[in-house]
Design a protein around this nucleic acid. Structure first.
Lengths: 167, 167
DNA sequence: CGATACTGGATCATATTAGTCCTGTATTCA
DNA sequence: TGAATACAGGACTAATATGATCCAGTATCG
């Protein structure tokens, strides 16, 4: 349902924990599991992937742990999703080889899906990790979609989404 | 992977067939199955859902079939996805009751996810069905993401995506 | 050298999705 | 009126993806 996996959801929460920790400090999997309320194996698995993808740096041994590999402000939501799920694409036959797409000839929509993919990648790429730890209300994201022959940009996403402190 | 289901993909292809057919003409499931190269039961299932959701009108009996319930230009990609998959949301604990979200208190990201959801809904809502049947090249969709304290709108999605004929 | 903590698979249970089939109902046409 | 056509609705099975866990290995610190 156009939905990120729970693993990715956890990943963002975990990275947000790093972003709130003192900069450059090491956090181990056990502490983060306790802090987020998630089971240790799951947290460990996600951290391993994030480290392999270059979003986290790992330090082995006693008092080891993970830390952000770069500034939290330079890590986007798109970066995290791509790290944990692969390239962002709404359909399967676009960024990969369309081998099993036997009805390609009859499908006229593919080029437009690429347009949509680019749009969504941009939307997610424009949201840094630091925006996922709100300390103050943020305005809604605005997405005017530019059309080819239609220059009247109807204003979209104009409903007020006030980020309240949850529960 | 932030991906629509194959059922929805088929649904868009099928609706695109209606959009290219003479306006108001009835198309039956068998013909559409042959035209799209999909098995009849699958096509039939999708058409039934689209009819129930109000995107298609059905006519029973001999020489019956389906037709678009409204103008193709007034049906958006978001409409189709919502019809076939339910409300568009990147995470599960947002538009539904967050009953099974036991770690809600420790999760600081939820309000921002709603921002992202609104952004993606708008992006998909701005693309009409008629844009999914390209007869001429379309420019890439542009998504400037407005920030709260940052008014320098970095231009996003500026890579040239020329819609070529696939393969 | 031993304890800690990351590394890298492998594995199992579950949920979702894909696809199919069957019975019923409405409509047309002979 | 009756047979053929085509949608309506639901149940069902198989395939796939995801969620979660476990185990043996390696690096580091004290």
């Amino acid at each position: 349902m156009i939905r990120i996996t729970r693993q990715t959801d956890y990943g963002i929460v975990l990275l947000a924990c790093f972003a709130t920790s003192p900069k450059g400090s090491l956090r181990n999997a056990r502490d983060l599991a306790a802090e987020t309320g998630q089971p240790l194996p799951t947290v460990s698995k996600i951290l391993k992937i994030l480290a392999r993808r270059g979003l986290l740096e790992s330090q082995r041994g006693v008092n080891g742990g993970y830390r952000l590999a770069r500034e939290a402000s330079s890590i986007s939501v798109a970066d995290i999703i791509t790290a944990l799920e692969g390239p962002i694409a709404m359909t399967e036959c676009l960024d990969e080889a369309a081998d099993d797409c036997s009805y390609e000839a009859t499908c006229p929509c593919r080029p437009n899906w690429e347009r949509i993919n680019v749009a969504i990648r941009s939307a997610l790429g424009g949201i840094p990790l630091t925006d996922m730890i709100p300390r103050f209300p943020l305005p809604p994201v605005q997405i005017p979609v530019s059309k080819s022959n239609d220059e009247t940009n109807t204003e979209l996403a104009s409903e007020g989404v006030s980020s309240e402190g949850g529960s």
